[in-house]
């Protein structure tokens, strides 16, 4: 494993006239929780989809898990886990069937299917619902299943796209505890969110707005740098100050 799980330099993605991601440069260190914060439409999803090899960047350069973003997107897809709460699961399949699908997709050797399945079901506490339709599960349970599916092939690098939207505070807290445990095992986690208050669970964050990076670093450092004279300020206030300071 590299000491940098992700490095990107001057990454750009244009859709026609619209620049969704505009010269973005950052690195994600191995074993950290890296937060990607910004409002809807700021370019979070576009960035995460480029990093996962789902769409090709317009220009720039980058490596994810040691593979080139332009030349080896298939290798990237094999070696990472990607969870998008909206799109990951088939609602008309049961958790077991969803898991079976992802085992095949991630080319997990059939000899270890049984063990992996049991491990995921146990870790995400889905024992009681394994044969129910996914669409009938409460949002919190679906979210755990989606996370479990992304972990089936034991990736060292995990991408989570808006994993906590629409779940209650308790489930959210449990979720973050679980993510923290994963990083203690050496997994690197890249997570996007539009909840500013979730930044406190991240080691380092990028704040993105209109496709551009507004701030990067540890949350406390960003607040201190932006609002040095207001010790009690939170990230939300720092972000507003950063945006308003811009012409």
């Amino acid at each position: 494993m590299h000491s940098e799980a992700v490095t990107v330099t001057d990454l750009v993605k244009r859709f026609g006239d619209f620049t969704a991601v505009d010269h973005v440069t950052f690195t994600v260190r191995a074993g950290e929780i890296f937060g990607f914060l910004g409002p809807n439409g700021a370019g979070k999803s576009t960035t995460i989809r480029m990093l996962c090899g789902i769409i090709t960047p317009t220009s720039g350069s980058g490596h994810v898990a040691g593979f080139d973003l332009f030349r080896q997107p298939e290798r990237i897809k094999e070696s990472i886990g990607y969870m998008s709460q909206k799109f990951s699961l088939y609602p008309d399949l049961t958790p077991m069937e969803n898991i079976r699908f992802y085992l095949g997709i991630y080319a997990v050797p059939p000899s270890s299917w049984k063990a992996r399945t049991e491990w995921v079901i146990r870790a995400t506490r889905l024992e009681s619902v394994r044969h129910r339709l996914t669409r009938d599960l409460p949002p919190g349970w679906r979210q755990r299943l989606a996370l479990g599916c992304a972990l089936l092939h034991r990736p060292r690098l995990l991408f989570l796209d808006e994993p906590t939207s629409g779940v209650d505070p308790i489930t959210r807290r449990h979720f973050w505890e679980f993510i923290r445990q994963l990083t203690e095992e050496g997994v690197t986690v890249f997570v996007t969110t539009h909840y500013m208050d979730e930044a406190r669970h991240c080691d380092r964050i990028v704040m993105i707005d209109a496709g551009k990076i507004a701030a990067i670093g540890k949350p406390s450092e960003i607040i201190q740098k932006t609002l040095p004279d207001r010790p009690g300020a939170d990230l939300q206030e720092a972000f507003v100050a950063l945006m308003r300071g811009r012409p």
């Binding site: 870790a123 995400t124 506490r125 919190g140 209650d168 308790i170 489930t171 807290r173 449990h174």
Partner: peptide, 23 residues
């Protein structure tokens, strides 16, 4: 508010509090 809300949910919804998951 978050802590207040979590505590209140825990008192009425014991099942949810039990749903903690771990490796």
């Amino acid at each position: 508010l978050e802590t207040a809300m979590i505590k209140r949910i825990e008192t009425v919804d014991a099942g949810l509090a039990e749903e903690r998951f771990a490796l």
